[in-house]
Amino acid sequence: MTRAEWHADSERLYDDLAAYALGALDASETAELECHIDECESCRERVRSLRSAVDLLPASVEQRTPPASLRENLLATVRAEATTAGDAAVRREPERALWWQRLAGLMARPAAAMTVLIVLTVGVAVGYLLRGSGEETKGLVSAMPLGPQAAQVSATLERHGDSATLHVNEMPKLDRDEVYAVWVKRAGVLEPRSTFVLGMDGSAEAAVPGPLEGADAVLVTAEPRPGGPQPTTQPLLEAPLG
């Protein structure tokens, strides 16, 4: 259809643009309309205007407090991936100091007291993470599933320097009040490292903060939220170190 034909029926076109801005057209209608929008400045302008209304819709819902675990899990993953990115410029030397400066800043705001508690928890883990030695021990090992529950799990441990990232697939679904906890085994003792939850496809990437030097293995257990100092269930996965 030519632009003139589209616009000849402008009421209908404007209705379509509104449905498009709301994400309410099906895939083929969307593709057809986008072809036109790409070439038509006045329709692009109209979509921008309608979108500014759509953009207000999220603010109309009841505002909730996200669970602290969401921030913890996100930042643990992101920091592990930032380290893995391998770009020396990304790994800022003074980062550890900055972290504590930020905590001090937050402390100054009483309203943020709750957040500080959460941040402190993460901060301890991140402190370990950033203590990684300069020496790069790179490598990928498979993690072994332990027990029948974990039979279908596939997992790898990606080592980078003195920390690691655990990639898991098809992990058993957790109960709503559980998290997976990552432990480092050293001389028969399990040290808590981080926690993670699964994506909807049963996969996850979990940071394994160091130090890993001299440790024997990385283990994963399911734990009641928010995880504790010692495991309370049998390990589901074990990845050997060293």
Partner: peptide, 9 residues
Amino acid sequence: KGRMRLGLE
């Protein structure tokens, strides 16, 4: 679609 447009406007 008309109601969507009127509402958004």
